[in-house]
Structures are given as structure tokens and as C-alpha cells.
């Protein structure tokens, strides 16, 4: 099953929409709630990253019999050092975003903790692609 969601940069009102839809779908499919939680935490953080940092993005969700694959592809400033971005506490979020309680530098570490596979590729000035894979059965 494939699902596509669009994200607008800066639109915090709708942040979490894709995560909420994916949660409903996984519940209907009787996916183990522990796995659903991992998928939802990782997807929400990735979604918020696009809203907070990029101009726009597309989310592709592929639900297969043995895994859930999520790809977030955004047009935005990109990440100059992925290694630095992965560090807990590192953030380039604006003061406005931080005031809302985002931008604590916990998003990417949260994704990493909740994904079985995480691939991030980025080109400065173009955008970032985040791939998250969660297995439905222990590997």
C-alpha cells in the first residue's frame, strides 16, 4: 500500500497530519502498537523537520508485509553537516520555533532511536531526503 502526503514549510497548523493518518491506517491493519509507536514518533519528527526547516516536501509511505518504508523528500536549505545535525541538542531552529517547544535538537536522535534503518542525504541549497524503514517482524 502506498500513500503520499504533501507538507508546506512553516505550516505548523497541519504538522503531524501525515503521522496521524499513518497511525490510523496501521491501527486498522492491526500492526503491533509498539511498532506503530516507533513509526509514528519517527515520522512526526521528520514531518516537523520539514515544516520547521524546508520550503515544501513530499512524504511517501509504503506499507509492505514485512516493513514500513517512509521517504521524506524536501526542497529546502539542506543540511551542511549531517553528523552535527544528528547530535542530541544541536539545532538550527528559529527563536519562534523554539518558543513553541520545538527545536531542542532532539528530533533526529528521536528518529534514529525509533527507526530500524535511517538514511539521510542532503544537498545544501537544494534539499534533504530522509528514508526511514521499520521492520514489522524482528530481523
Amino acid at each position: 500500500m502506498d500513500f503520499i502526503f504533501n507538507i508546506e514549510g512553516g505550516d505548523f497548523t497541519n504538522a503531524g497530519f501525515a503521522s496521524s493518518e499513518v497511525k490510523k491506517i496501521l491501527k486498522k491493519l492491526n500492526v503491533d502498537p509498539k511498532i506503530t509507536r516507533r513509526v509514528v514518533v519517527a515520522l512526526y519528527e521528520a514531518e516537523v523537520n520539514v515544516v520547521a526547516h524546508a520550503y515544501r516536501g513530499v512524504i511517501h509511505v509504503d506499507i509492505d508485509t514485512d516493513h514500513i518504508g517512509i521517504v521524506l523528500d524536501d526542497e529546502g536549505p539542506g543540511i551542511s553537516s549531517i553528523e552535527q545535525a544528528m547530535q542530541e541538542g544541536f539545532s538550527t531552529a528559529s527563536p519562534k520555533v523554539r518558543e513553541m517547544g520545538f527545536g531542542a535538537g532532539m528530533g533526529l536522535p528521536n528518529i534514529s532511536k525509533n527507526a530500524d534503518v535511517l538514511n539521510i542525504t542532503s544537498e545544501v541549497g537544494k534539499g534533504t531526503k530522509v528514508e526511514i524503514i521499520t521492520y514489522l517482524k524482528p530481523q
Binding site: F12, A15, G16, S19, S20
Partner: peptide, 14 residues
């Protein structure tokens, strides 16, 4: 002390 809509998104997701 956060009072915006994203609070409910997280409360619902978790």
C-alpha cells in the same frame, strides 16, 4: 505551559 495546536497532535499520537 504550551498552549498551541501541536500539543494536541502529540497528545493524540502518543
Amino acid at each position: 505551559l504550551q498552549t498551541h495546536k501541536n500539543v494536541m497532535a502529540i497528545a493524540s499520537l502518543r
